[in-house]
Design a protein around this nucleic acid. Structure first.
Length: 428
RNA sequence: GGGGAGUUUCCCGAGCGGUCAAAGGGGUCAGACUGUAAAUCUGAUGGCACUGCCUUCGCAGGUUCGAAUCCUGCACUCCCCA
């Protein structure tokens, strides 16, 4: 156990900025404190970028405190301008509600396993009944314009061509009010968030002091960025989501496995609960034997288990073995279909296998692994074609029922990584 | 309105009567190497029933045994002079 929570966070590189460290440390020495982080329901799933805040809350819980996850049902209708270069598009009420439900379920699952009480609140619950005049009088009156204009999130947007709307400008008042509300209702004194949230957090601290003479605190954690400057969790095909329906456990696992050496160390420290001494050992090993990619493996394992559970991790690892050439004769259709769920598939009539059989070139082309049958032919001739992970070098090869064994599908592959599934169903 | 240059295969760009499915580069795909990295190297790169056949070089006609290459018309792009 680390000497105290705040030092643990600092040691793991999770503290970017904070209010008075001594006061924070003191406040955190008493167990059962409540600490909050906000999540805006902009999509129906969290993504990898949210993991830092989630892990921060898990550490808070592990240290004996009670995390509060605030879902921005109200603020989500407005859109946070922080870290944004353009005005957000507003979500419809139905979408917003669906997002709130989905995100709440994810947050609960990720936080409740620590074993501490978890509070999930929605700021729409206290914002809904508040009238505009009332809000201006009770909240707006206490926030100096000079302070609002001084925030980076506002300044940077005002300097741009697009500017920002009054609506987005007002966002920080809502978030400030949230903090005060949680201080009232949950005796919450600390807000944590990404480094882009500093302005919004300090706005809340300021408001708490003016309205309630409260001594509120804030901690921001560094936003995860990769060494090459791009955002963590972004791939060519989009964000890496926590929802398995959006990003399969396999692709989630692979994202971490493929992480650059340079980024792996700090991700392990910031995003997992691996003890720091073990992190350091892995860093040393990384220097000695980068090819082993022990850090990436551990990282992928820890995070996949956390997000997708033990079963999800096993599925991802099984899929990994298959995708990297392992034989899979022993796997049944259902398992295979699951492993290859992400992979494009093409349906053929079962009868195509009868008689002479289906030319492999045709199957490759139809499944999208080759642009034309000529291209498929070349791939085969150059040794790049695989049927059920066995290389086929005969360009005249025809697929027959023998290749199916007792299954209804076969797995085609072109090169190292491009897979496609061919399904053979009777009747169609 | 007058004069000039151009339009080539995914992109750039050579070719200027047969040996042209068309140089070279880029991209892409495959192979080797490798750490599921980066770099590098090799091969392939219009289609197909592939030692052959079919369809391409702005569009439509024509000359010729034979045209991406010559002629005529049309369309579009760019430059110079009004």
């Amino acid at each position: 156990m680390p000497s105290d929570l705040f030092s643990d966070l600092t040691d793991r590189g999770l503290v970017h900025q904070s209010t008075d460290a001594t006061a924070l440390r003191d406040w955190l020495t008493t167990p059962g404190r409540r600490i909050y982080a906000g999540f805006d329901p902009t999509a129906d799933s969290l993504h990898v970028g949210h993991l830092v805040a989630i892990m921060l809350l898990r550490r808070v819980a592990a240290a004996g405190h009670e995390p509060i996850a605030l879902i921005g049902g109200a603020t989500g209708m407005i859109g946070d301008p922080s870290g944004r270069s353009e005005e957000r598009n507003l979500l419809s009420p139905e979408t917003l509600q669906a997002n709130i439900t989905a995100v709440e379920a994810q947050i609960r699952r990720l936080l409740e396993s620590v074993g501490q009480p978890v509070h999930v609140v929605n700021n729409a619950d206290w914002m809904r009944g508040v009238g505009y005049l009332e809000f201006l009088r009770d909240v707006g009156k206490h926030v100096p314009l000079s302070q609002m204009l001084g925030k980076d999130s506002v300044k940077s947007r005002l300097e741009r061509d697009g500017g920002l709307s009054y609506t987005e400008f007002s966002y920080m008042l809502l978030q400030a009010w949230d903090f005060v509300q949680l201080a009232d209702s949950h005796d919450c004194r600390v807000q944590i968030g990404g480094s882009d949230q500093w302005g919004n957090i300090t706005a809340g601290i300021e408001l708490g002091r003016r309205l309630r003479s409260l001594d509120l605190h804030g901690i921001t954690c560094p936003l995860l960025t990769k060494a090459d400057g791009t955002k963590m969790g972004k791939t060519a095909s989009g964000a890496v989501w926590l929802d398995p329906a959006r990003t399969s456990p396999y692709r989630f696992y692979q994202y971490w496995i493929n992480l650059d050496d340079h980024d792996a160390g700090c991700c392990l420290e910031r995003l997992t609960e691996v003890p720091l001494t073990a992190c350091q050992a892995l860093t040393a090993e990384r220097a000695d034997n980068p090819a082993g990619r022990a850090t990436q493996r551990r990282l992928a394992e820890e995070l996949t288990r956390l997000v997708h559970g033990e079963a999800g991790l096993q599925a991802a690892q099984q899929a990994t073995a298959v995708f990297f050439g392992a034989a899979f004769e022993s796997l049944d259709d259902a398992t295979l279909a699951e492993i290859f769920a992400d992979v494009p598939s093409h349906d053929f009539a079962r009868q195509r296998l009868d008689g002479e059989g289906l030319p492999l070139t045709e199957a490759l082309a139809a499944a999208g692994l080759a642009a034309t049958r000529s291209a498929a032919r070349r791939t085969i001739e150059q040794g790049g074609a695989y049927l059920n992970n066995n290389r086929i070098t005969d360009h005249a090869y025809r697929i027959t029922p023998n290749d199916l064994r007792d299954r209804s599908l076969i797995v085609l592959r072109s090169g190292k990584k491009s897979y496609a599934v061919a399904r053979f169903n009777a009747g169609s």
